[in-house]
């Protein structure tokens, strides 16, 4: 049976999948909106506990990585295989930096006992509890997506190397890039909502 190939269809499918991901996070944004409305003062104070510097660094790192993914697509389209691989690799390094920073942030909070279900947390004011629960839940789910995106990009990098992604056939790379932009986009919303409301 001959394989059916439809690049436009594949992209359409990816876009619809991205809608579903946005709606998945949409549920969390809804909870955030309700709770922020209810406990706006406490959210404001709790946000002081987050390190806006690390948050900013991570934002810049992710924005940069989105650019490198886009550059990789152009490179592959032009047939510059080595550059394509290099740009994906840089993207993966950015993902590593992001995760390392998150490890520092989460590690610090957990070491001082500030995590959902901890004795310290349960004793806090309601707005604080919900802010930090949302912080861990939202950034945690975002990190999971970042890890999945990194795995996808790693597979794509190998496929560029062995030539199964090439100037004639690069829809998978484009779709992987779209997914990476989604990871970036969600962070762009998480960053101000969690770090910049002080």
């Amino acid at each position: 049976m001959e394989m059916h190939r439809d690049d436009l269809g594949a992209r359409l499918g990816m876009w619809i999948f991205i809608f579903t991901e946005i709606l998945l996070f949409g549920g969390l944004f809804l909870v955030y909106a309700v709770m922020r409305h209810r406990y706006s003062d406490e959210f404001h104070q709790a946000a002081h506990q987050l390190n806006a510097f690390i948050g900013t660094v991570n934002t810049v790192v992710l924005l940069f990585s989105s650019a490198t993914v886009a550059m990789s697509i152009t490179a592959v389209q032009k047939g510059e295989k080595r550059k394509g691989v290099l740009f994906i690799f840089i993207t993966l390094v950015c993902a590593g930096i992001f995760l390392f920073n998150k490890y520092l942030e989460w590690g610090h909070k957990i070491s001082i006992g500030l995590y959902p279900g901890s004795e310290m947390m349960v004793g806090l004011k309601h707005g604080y509890i919900l802010f930090f629960s949302l912080y861990f839940f939202m950034t945690g789910l975002h990190m999971l997506h970042l890890v999945i995106g990194s795995i996808i990009l790693t597979i794509i990098m190998v496929k560029i190397l062995i030539g199964s992604i090439n100037p004639g056939k690069y829809t998978l790379l484009e779709n992987g890039g779209l997914y990476w932009h989604l990871v970036d986009l969600i962070w762009i919303f998480l960053f101000p909502l969690l770090y910049l409301i002080t």
């Binding site: 991901e21 998945l24 996070f25 549920g27 909870v31 959902p116 509890i129 839940f137």
Partner: peptide
């Protein structure tokens, strides 16, 4: 479907980590 997906994950997180979204004793609803 994604909305119920995230809601069901919240139930799991509520049970495992006490995130409190739906627990009035922690400020949830």
């Amino acid at each position: 479907t994604p909305i119920v997906g995230i809601t069901l994950l919240m139930i799991i997180a509520e049970r495992w980590f006490r995130i409190g979204f739906f627990d009035p004793s922690l400020g949830g609803d």
